[in-house]
């Protein structure tokens, strides 16, 4: 079952960077790769630093896997799977996210 939530305008996204959305009390980081026109959504909470900041990290890739590097202590998380590159036991939730017309939408139930 899907449940798309309207988040913000497409223009609110930051090219090759992130923003944070508040969806049902959850902090969710949404990243936007402008050239590839790809979106990723992942928990904003950094489990190592215990603060809500991942949307403010730098993004890029490690061996082709798109990732964000936490601004606090530089742990890397795979944006597609939520897996932490440095610690196998840590994995964040990821969410489906899409652009619908001019709006950005997120599917909380599609959480993996």
């Amino acid at each position: 079952m899907t449940h798309w939530v309207d988040i913000c305008d497409k223009a609110d996204l930051q090219a090759d960077s992130g923003v944070c959305a508040l969806v049902e009390d959850k902090h969710i980081a949404i990243f936007y790769l402008e050239q590839e026109q790809k979106l990723f959504a992942i928990d904003n909470y950094d489990p190592f630093g215990k603060i809500s900041v991942l949307s403010r990290g730098l993004i890029g890739d490690i061996q082709g896997q798109v990732m964000v590097s936490s601004p606090l202590y530089k742990h890397h998380f795979n944006l597609s799977t939520g897996q932490c590159f440095e610690d196998d036991s840590v994995s964040l939730c990821t969410y489906d996210v899409r652009i619908n017309g001019d709006r950005v939408e997120l599917n909380l139930k599609g959480a993996s």
Partner: peptide
């Protein structure tokens, strides 16, 4: 500037130093 924004370290990108609590 839009082209450079994604190149800045967390501190540069918000023009301030992030503290331990964000």
């Amino acid at each position: 500037k839009k082209e450079h924004l994604s190149l800045q370290d967390t501190n540069d990108t918000f023009l301030a130093n992030m503290q331990k609590d964000g």
